[in-house]
Design a protein around this nucleic acid. Structure first.
Length: 558
RNA sequence: UGGGGUGUAGCCAAGUGGUAAGGCAGCGGGUUUUGAUCCCGCCAUUCGGAGGUUCGAAUCCUUCCACCCCAGCCA
């Protein structure tokens, strides 16, 4: 058992079950996605919980596709979900299953219910069934078909399966209690007719079981001990238990509910996600601005950081809204250790060093990681013309501004201290170049480099720089809870993506997609897995560095 | 107005009758050739409110309040 893992209420229940010998001390869980969309950060919480809990107790976890509604499901989603779970770092080994694997057993169970007078074929229309169901405060009333004979029910149900009826003509319903205060118990539908092929079973079936009927029984068939789901299924639990009571399978699973993850400024509604994808608002399910696992992977979020995040948010039954700052902290914490440092200028401003020989190239040593000397160093070319970040020069600088200003000095990281002598402008008066001198006694690492200046900035040699596209991402929405607004289009952040033409230090010219780098003083970046190539480098900003200067500026404004 | 849940700091979250852990954020300071990292310190006399039980209550009881979920032939 992992001591770093908080003892949330689920783990406490499991501890008690093991202590009391329930389930023979076994722990078996399942992650049951419906293959009708891509997985998102909310699913990550469930995956980490289900796989994590099983691993801690030497148990097992099934990856089970809850594929009972073929009209909405597809092979593409099945494939993507498997990729995402694997990427997040979990292995279902030989325990890949589908609710549809149990369609034969489920069908038999349905006939058993009919024989026990616990299910009947209803021939009301969908609208009529809704009307008969009553309301939250008024009891429903029995369907006129509720008391069909066993023989008639069996005959009708078999003919439903045989394809003798059109979609919607009949359904199979449980016979429970139309007056129950719990609406889920007012004779819920068990089977409906759908003449559509299924991504896993092909055209074998034209009737498909509903979630409530299929899920608990699938749990029982697989020997699931702890069936973990989200809060909205809490009042389905009496129904979950009812099926087990009626059919009395050899194994009895228990359902426990926890609250789903809500991440501020992230969308976890499959319907709305689907809309953004189909309308082309984003580049696909893997758009780096989305909180889908595919998007976060492409963005460059390390899976270990997401797992750490899921561990830190905890598991409770309370509605929550997690701040993006926590996720970003997990990402930075991981990447600070993992990522080698490089120098990249994202918004270039040319600087000419007037006392440095034209045509001369000097090679300077740069540490790959300030806190991990074992990662060694690299050589960076230095020359008369360099690029610095536009933000690192200011004409009318406030007193606390430590970077370059007219007449001011700054250190070029791993190189020399320079002084700004002249500002060059174009016809519009815009600053297009700086003329500076360098102090040859201040070369990094040299015996006489002790002189201190307040600021250090990054740079790239203009003659050696590799041009690259850099994509700077910001939150996709302007509101913290895009899932709760009626229309997502009006709350899209128009500047969620900014594309910059950047200058890379030469060592980044031959880099593999996905590897994270820290661009010094800017943030963490990785080459894009889709659009990056050797000829046309494309980098994604994973996350910015914490920015103390931004804080100072903000305070100055107040 | 029925049923099911949940209320501990700005955001999460421990706590299970013995005197409010921890993380994120924030604030203050130190180190620093990344305004990063790192380090140190501060940050709930009070647990949704009001009563009650008890030597002692976030934990037990009563009552009130707020918020979330449920009326798919979706999951």
């Amino acid at each position: 058992m992992n001591d770093n893992q908080p003892r949330d209420f689920i783990r406490q229940i499991i501890d008690e079950d093991i202590a009391s010998g329930k389930h023979g001390g076994r722990v078996v869980t399942r992650f049951p996605p419906e293959p009708n969309g891509y997985l998102h950060v909310g699913h990550a919480k469930s995956i980490c919980l289900n796989f994590g809990v099983a691993a801690e107790y030497a148990g097992r976890t099934f990856l089970r596709f809850d594929d009972t509604n073929p009209g909405k499901e597809s092979e593409e989603y099945v494939r993507a979900i498997k990729d995402d779970v694997r990427w997040l770092g979990f292995d279902w080994e030989d325990r890949l299953s589908h609710a549809s694997d149990y369609f034969d057993q489920l069908y038999d169970a349905a006939e058993t219910l009919i024989v026990k007078d616990k299910a009947y074929v209803d021939s009301l229309t969908a609208e009529q069934i809704r009307a008969y169901r009553g309301t939250l405060t008024e009891a429903g009333k029995d369907s006129p078909y509720r008391n069909r004979s066993l023989e008639e029910n069996l005959d009708l149900f078999r003919r439903m399966r045989a394809g003798e009826f059109a979609d919607g003509e009949h359904v199979l319903r449980a016979k429970i209690d139309m007056a129950s205060p719990n609406i889920n118990l007012r004779d819920p539908t068990l089977y409906r007719i759908r003449h559509v092929p299924h991504q896993h079973t092909g055209d074998k079936w034209c009737i498909y079981p509903m979630y409530d009927f299929a899920h608990g029984l699938s749990d029982a068939f697989e020997g699931i001990t702890h069936s973990l789901c989200t809060l909205e299924f809490e009042d389905h639990r009496p129904l979950y238990d009812w099926f087990l009571d009626q059919l009395d399978p050899p194994h009895r699973p228990r359902q426990y509910e926890f609250s789903r993850l809500n991440l501020a400024f992230a969308l976890t509604s499959k319907r709305k996600l689907n809309l953004l994808v189909s309308e082309g608002i984003v580049s696909g399910w893997d758009d780096p601005r989305l909180a889908t696992l595919a998007g976060m992977r492409r963005r460059g979020y390390p899976p270990a950081a997401i797992r750490d995040f899921c561990r830190r948010i905890g598991v409770t039954k309370k509605e929550n809204m997690i701040e993006m700052a926590l996720l970003e902290n997990c990402i930075r914490e991981n990447l600070d250790v993992a990522a080698e440092r490089r120098m990249v200028v994202v918004h270039p401003l040319k600087v000419t060093l007037t006392n440095f020989d034209a045509g001369k190239t000097e090679m300077l040593a740069a540490q790959n990681h300030p806190n991990r000397p074992e990662l060694g160093s690299r050589q960076i070319p230095f020359s008369r013309e360099i690029f610095i970040e536009r933000d690192d020069f200011m004409e009318d600088a406030p007193k606390k501004y430590f970077r370059l200003k007219p007449g001011g000095e700054v250190r070029l990281r791993f190189a020399y201290i320079i002084q700004c002598k002249e500002v060059v402008r174009n016809a519009n008066g815009e600053v297009i170049e700086l003329l500076c001198t360098l102090d040859p006694d201040t070369r990094s690492g040299s015996a006489s480099s002790e002189r201190k200046v307040k600021g250090t900035i990054h740079w790239v040699s203009a003659t050696h720089a590799v041009p690259a596209e850099v994509r700077l991402y910001d939150r996709l929405f302007t509101v913290a809870d895009p899932g709760s607004v009626a229309e997502v289009m009006p709350v899209l952040n128009p500047s969620s993506l900014a594309v910059a033409q950047a200058k890379l230090e030469p060592s980044l010219g031959t880099v593999v997609a996905g590897t994270p780098w820290q661009f010094e003083r800017l943030g963490y970046f990785c080459a894009d897995s889709v659009d990056h190539s050797g000829n046309k480098p494309v980098f994604n900003r994973i996350v910015t560095l914490r920015d103390g200067w931004a804080k100072i500026e903000k305070q100055a404004l107040q």
